[in-house]
């Protein structure tokens, strides 16, 4: 038991690597501050495409969304990072992460919004249009706000997933939180940095998870 404590819960090691891990946390937060808002907005655009009345827009969009939801995000990331140079596009690791995970998260967010739009009764759109609101105004003021409210727990759940997804960026050596923790582990020959990273993720995500549970209860 003492050995277990030495290996995983070594406070001396944790204190020593904490500043280094905070650097990683900043990188994670930077990624999230880009991925979450852009993902949430592009998810709306994806939903507009997959629910478009025009087949030429709708079918390719549905096919792409299905593909990227089934495709492993890690492979997508490596493909963007290591594959794009072959067509003459060399992108920094951070940009590769942003692009790959944006494609992935926009697909997931898009499907959540679509489910939300389906849950809004047809009469809402009709009432809005009958007062002269345009299709765009109807979306902005009547149907989309209701759709978002109906799927808010799912949007938040997906956001939690997205934050955890950023740990995959460690594979292409982006120094985000998990990557820093793993590096610290190999430098200190001790697993405590990983536990510290886990604690940071928990502190970050537990409030959101709790909020989701409360929202689901309210609905």
């Amino acid at each position: 038991m003492e050995q277990f404590g030495q290996e995983f819960l070594n406070l001396d090691v944790m204190a020593k690597v904490a500043p280094f891990l905070l650097q990683g946390l900043l990188q994670t937060l930077l990624l999230c501050s880009f991925l979450i808002p852009i993902g949430l907005v592009s998810g709306i655009l994806v939903m507009l495409l997959t629910t478009s009345p025009y087949r030429l827009l709708r079918w390719p969009a549905i096919a792409a969304v299905d593909f990227f939801r089934a495709f492993p995000p890690l492979v997508l990331l490596v493909f963007v990072y290591a594959g794009l140079p072959f067509i003459g596009l060399r992108v920094p690791a951070l940009v590769a992460v942003a692009v790959a995970f944006l494609i992935n998260s926009a697909s997931y967010y898009g499907e959540i919004y679509r489910a939300g739009m389906v849950s809004v009764p047809k009469g809402q759109r009709e009432a809005a249009r009958s007062t002269g609101l345009s299709a765009t105004q109807t979306l902005l003021y009547v149907t989309l706000p209701q759709a978002i409210r109906n799927v808010l727990p799912d949007l938040l759940s997906n956001t939690v997933e997205l934050v955890k997804l950023t740990t995959l960026a460690s594979v292409i050596s982006v120094p985000e939180l998990l990557h820093s923790a793993n590096l610290a582990r190999s430098l200190t020959y001790n697993s405590s940095p990983l536990i510290l990273a886990a604690i940071i993720y928990l502190l970050l995500l537990l409030p959101i998870v709790r909020l989701i549970a409360r929202l689901e209860h309210r609905l």
Binding site: P121, G123, Q124, E126, A127, A128, S130, T131, V142, Q146
Partner: peptide
């Protein structure tokens, strides 16, 4: 103006 059977208030 249009008034609906199921009201359709927002």
């Amino acid at each position: 103006g249009m008034v609906f059977q199921s009201f359709n208030l927002y």
